[in-house]
């Protein structure tokens, strides 16, 4: 078992990376690695609620974030600065990710065995 952090960086609206990072996280958690996920940059948009009726041409994978509970993925963080830059507030988020500042992210990463950046 290793402590692995996945850093999510891509918006869900123009890229499928977030989906592939999610699949990777689930696969790693399924074999008992201890996962942490940090949403930063445009990836904070992955955490917003969306209107399910809106037509959209990429698969909406955010519904699958609910799987985190089933896979015991509990360490979810969102970059506070990225939220601020986009004029978002942490209480607008659909997922209970804890806002963290740069120093906290640094400390988090330093405590991990592996970091994957998608």
């Amino acid at each position: 078992m290793q402590h692995i952090t996945i850093i999510q960086r891509q918006s869900p609206f123009n890229h499928s990376s977030g989906r592939e990072a999610l699949d990777l996280a689930l696969a790693l958690a399924a074999v008992e690695h201890q996962l942490t996920i940090i949403f930063t940059g445009d990836a904070v948009y992955q955490l917003l609620d969306y209107n399910p009726a809106t037509e959209f041409a990429l698969k909406r994978y955010q519904q699958s974030f609910k799987l985190f509970g089933l896979y015991d993925i509990e360490h979810l963080y969102v970059c506070q600065a990225s939220l601020q830059q986009r004029q978002l507030d942490s209480n607008q988020l659909s997922l209970a990710a804890k806002p963290v500042d740069a120093l906290q992210i640094q400390q988090l990463l330093a405590s991990q065995h592996q970091v994957v950046c998608i």
Partner: peptide, 18 residues
Amino acid sequence: QEFGTSPAIRVLVKAMAQ
């Protein structure tokens, strides 16, 4: 319906156990 994805075997076992 709940998760928006078809369950693979591992997660199916886990979800059913729960």
